[in-house]
Amino acid sequence: MLGLSLAEFEAQDGFLLIGTDLRGEYPLLNLRVRRASQRGAQVAALNPVRFDANYATVINASLGPDGLIGGLARLLEAVSKRRSEPLPAWVADWSARSPISADDLGVLVQLLERGPRVQIILGGWVEAHPQGSLITRLVSEIADQTGARWASLPTGPNALGAERVRALWGAGASRVVARELFDRPRKLYCLFGVEPEYDLWDPVTAQHALGQAEEVLVLASWLAPTHAAHASVVLPLAAQAETGGTYIDLEGRRNGFEALAPPYGEARPGWKILRMLGQRLGLQGFEYETREEILAEMNARTPATVTRNPDPASEPVAIPDRPQADWWRIARRPPYGSDPCVRHFRSAPRRPR
């Protein structure tokens, strides 16, 4: 979420893009950065690989996955020294491995000195990085030291909405990140609108775990190859245009929408399927009769607008003492491949997946 309006975003004097192919991930947001650049704003990019930009950049660096951590650690060390702020020892350890040159470091520090007029953007590559939480923590510290704004862009449809209602597996000490669900295979999996071969960053590990499960329940609008190979039961899920709901946009605002057509065949809206499953299992909190009841409860629990990102310091972060791998696989998510609805539109241009 940006934490400011799109008009305010475009009016920034500088942008630091981290782990994002903004032109491919968010073309309309990229257009606003381009307009700002034409107006005179400076743009710098730090990525695991080099992405082409359609505007001038003061830095467009390819640092590699581990180099991204080292580069940000060195940048944090540089801005902290100017303010005589103490840092943990691990920051210096990672800073020593930084591939950023002294000249580029100076340009980045000068850019960030513009403070609140600079927007730092974290993209999908940060979310996919094994140490994404550490990268986010470093960026948050850099923003605190310089006064710059920072925003983490979601990679999935309505990811901001899911975060808003705390749609997380477990809580507190029992919280489990998605990767652990597949690294340690479970007996039962429920795939809700997910095509593992396209939607997960490590589809090989996920499909291996699905193959070891005793049961796999699939709720889907389209039958993907992984569904056909592993599903014990498939329940037809209404497609996006066949059900109403609520989205949270990049400005943090709540937006409702209505169904354009009734569900096809025996398909049902997702909330109705989950309600039925919850009631059959005798669980509490599945007594809703209408979508409006769910919406009213959600609105009562969450503000209409959220302008701040979650505090990264509230989540525990493991600090690796050395690079995590000698070889990395870096895969790009192509246009028209963001979610099943878009992937299965026959009118969408055919691109490699």
Rank of each mutant, 00 (worst) to 15 (best):
L63N: 10
P88I: 13
G123K: 06
A206N: 07
L217I: 14
P157Y: 10
V317E: 07
I142S: 09
G170R: 09
L22K: 08
L181N: 02
T305Q: 13
S133M: 11
I294F: 02
G193A: 11
T57W: 08
G244R: 07
V216T: 12
L105E: 14
E251T: 01
A300K: 11
L260I: 05
L160M: 07
R166C: 07
S221Y: 02
R164S: 08
L217F: 15
P316V: 09
V107N: 03
R35A: 06
Q279Y: 08
L6E: 07
L200E: 12
E215K: 12
R351W: 13
W94C: 04
A167N: 13
L28I: 00
I120S: 01
L188Y: 14
C341V: 09
E266N: 11
V233Q: 09
A238V: 04
A78C: 11
R329T: 03
L191F: 10
A173K: 05
F286I: 02
A224Y: 09
L22G: 00
H208T: 14
D21A: 12
P116F: 05
W271G: 02
E242W: 03
V218T: 10
E287M: 02
G256C: 02
P312G: 08
T155I: 06
S62G: 09
P312L: 08
A173Q: 13
N30P: 00
G132P: 10
T226K: 09
L46G: 10
I273C: 04
L28D: 13
R175W: 05
G211D: 07
A228G: 08
E266Q: 13
F257H: 13
R39M: 12
A171C: 08
I69E: 10
L108Y: 02
G14Y: 04
F182L: 02
E242G: 03
V49T: 14
K81E: 15
E287T: 11
I100W: 01
V342I: 15
F9Q: 01
L260H: 09
R184A: 08
G265L: 10
L277M: 14
T305D: 02
P263D: 02
Y26M: 06
M298P: 00
G19Q: 10
T307I: 05
D202E: 14
R291C: 01
P157F: 06
A128V: 05
P236R: 00
G70Y: 12
R332W: 00
E251I: 02
S140A: 15
R254D: 09
M1D: 00
S221E: 15
R137G: 08
E293R: 05
T20C: 12
Y288E: 14
I248H: 02
G19A: 07
T302S: 06
Y26I: 00
A228Y: 04
A267W: 01
W328E: 01
Y189S: 04
V317W: 12
D199P: 10
T136I: 09
G282V: 03
I142P: 10
P99R: 05
I69A: 11
T226N: 10
P316R: 06
A11P: 01
A159V: 04
V306A: 07
A73K: 14
G115K: 11
W90R: 06
E8V: 01
